[in-house]
Design a binder for these strands. Structure first.
Length: 461
RNA sequence: GGCGAGUUGGCGGAGUGGUUACGCGCCGGAUUGCAAAUCCGUGUAUGGGGGUUCGAUUCCCCCACUCGCCUCCA
């Protein structure tokens, strides 16, 4: 069996992955807060962990992997959006969830086995908070419940910080009801206008971190294999999850995986820099989902990834070539995969290495293995995508083009190259690309195909 | 201020204690009336300084720089 190696943030080392139960490999990934379209940065962890999900399914069997990714649907950003637009919170979150799933499907992400929403697990969160209070790890104060960081000696182990360091750095809001400035909120009160649930501490809503601890325990058990997310979540979110869960007596996650951030043309994506865009924006501009995925996978997940126009163009070019090549292969997608591909993915998801191997397969003319490898990577679903296919012409258009090409052949025969080139350039201008071959000239429809220009050319020559 | 990651050729981007993958670009060539496409081929890199070693790009230390996080954020 393939040995998967993963870089565990907790130990800061690459380790062989050993599941708790190979019949039931369990992974939890922090999903989005649903208040707006997913931006390009949101797509990175989705794609990275989708590759891992596919790898796990390949190694342990599709029915032996349980992948959970949550939707955070209770949050002050959502409340703000509701107040600002006058729309119901439920409408906003429902719509955003469906957008998210559509957009992520476009970049080739499989849906996880479960996609719990925080609002559906309030009961479990309240129970967990009560338990933490009973165990002396949390306390109620002024309608809030706070986790006592002081009560968990290993706090900071994941991110490599000590509580003293953090207090020294102090940019922490010090609320009067906190015993310690580092304590974080498990439950907070809601006013009339804010969503809330009845609880032993009055009407209120959960703090951000508790949902993942509660839902992971409910859906994956109190100890599971892998927990993932962006490295901006490492602190404080994941640190707090660990503190809560461990103090509730849970083993929690064995392996922690974090992907690095995304940049755009060398800079952090931000609204103020004007380089902020959503996945939907790119798709609407005609950037295929496969291209987005390819660019994402061309940088290792633990390195900052720079989205550039140049990479987009290169990716499109490479994929177009590969799709044409694998179109020549009839290999069935039976789950077998080229050894080099599987080994590179299993080596801490070294997708750049995989892509390098794919170039080798392409150059060697091994289109069957290329086909299978692209399938495992999620870049190919069994159908050559429309954008990579040579688009056909109607019969009438084909006749017209054949006639023009014929005239060009005659002109070439007469060594009237001026006329021949005029026809070639005219065809090109009308959006018909030409390649001379040993036998008949080949032609293809380009994106700027214009039947009127073609007609004009036919009439004037 | 604290914590973390990183610094490889023109660009992107891996691996490796001992001939530095691979892709794009560039250059040269084949082919072509010219193009396009295709094919063949050449060249170019491990931030700086120490240390360990027969030998370091790879391991260790220091420095410089870059990026991220520490505040909602994937």
């Amino acid at each position: 069996m393939t040995t998967i190696k993963l870089h565990n943030t907790m130990t800061r080392r690459k380790e062989a992955f050993v599941p708790i139960d190979p019949q039931d490999v369990r992974m939890y990934v922090c999903g989005p807060t649903v208040y707006d379209r997913a931006h390009l940065g949101n797509a990175r962890p989705v794609i990275v962990f989708d590759v891992l999900y596919r790898l796990l399914r390949h190694v342990y069997g599709a029915n032996h992997v349980n992948y959970v990714r949550n939707f955070t649907d209770v949050d002050d950003k959502i409340n703000a959006k509701s107040a600002q637009t006058g729309r119901e919170i439920g409408d906003i979150t429902d719509e955003t969830v469906s957008w998210f799933l559509e957009d992520m499907a476009q970049v080739g992400a499989l849906e996880p086995n479960a996609m719990p929403r925080a609002t559906q697990y309030i009961v479990q969160m309240v129970a967990m908070i009560e338990d933490l209070i009973a165990r002396g790890h949390a306390y109620a104060a002024q309608g809030h419940v706070l986790f006592s960081v002081d009560s968990y000696a290993q706090y900071g182990a994941l991110s490599g910080r000590s509580v003293d360091d953090m207090i020294a750095g102090a940019r922490v809001e010090v609320a009067p009801y906190k015993r310690d400035p580092m304590d974080f909120v498990l439950w907070k009160p809601s006013d009339e206008a804010t969503p809330g649930w009845e609880s032993p501490w009055g009407r209120g809503r959960p703090g951000w971190h508790i949902e993942c601890s509660a839902m992971a325990a409910e859906l994956l058990g109190t100890q599971f294999d892998i927990h993932g997310g962006g490295n901006d979540l490492q602190f404080p979110h994941h640190e707090n999850e660990i503190a809560q869960s461990r103090c509730a007596g849970h083993g929690f996650a064995n392996v922690w995986l974090h992907n690095e951030m995304l940049q755009v043309e060398g800079k952090k994506m931000s609204k103020s820099l004007g380089n902020f865009f959503t996945v939907r924006d790119l798709l609407d501009q005609g950037v295929p989902g496969e291209v987005i995925r390819f660019v994402m996978l061309s940088t290792h997940y633990r390195k900052p990834m720079d989205w550039t126009e140049k990479k987009r163009v290169e990716a499109e070019q490479t994929l177009k070539k590969w799709f044409r090549q694998i179109g020549l292969s009839t290999a069935t997608l039976d789950g077998s995969v080229h050894r080099g591909t599987i080994e590179a993915i299993a080596d801490d998801l070294n997708t750049p290495e995989v892509i390098s191997n794919l170039h080798a397969l392409s150059n060697a003319g091994d289109f069957s293995q290329l086909r299978k490898s692209l399938y495992l990577l999620g870049l190919f679903d069994g159908q050559i995508p429309k954008w990579a296919r040579v688009e056909g012409f109607s019969d009438a258009e084909t006749g017209l083009i054949r006639d023009l090409l014929n005239r060009r052949e005659i002109a070439r025969g007469d060594r009237d190259f001026a006329k021949a080139d005029l026809l070639r350039d005219g065809l090109l201008d009308a959006g018909v690309g030409i390649k001379d071959t040993a036998t008949e000239p080949e032609f293809e429809r380009l994106s700027n195909f214009d039947i009127n220009k073609l007609d004009g050319l036919w009439g004037s020559s």
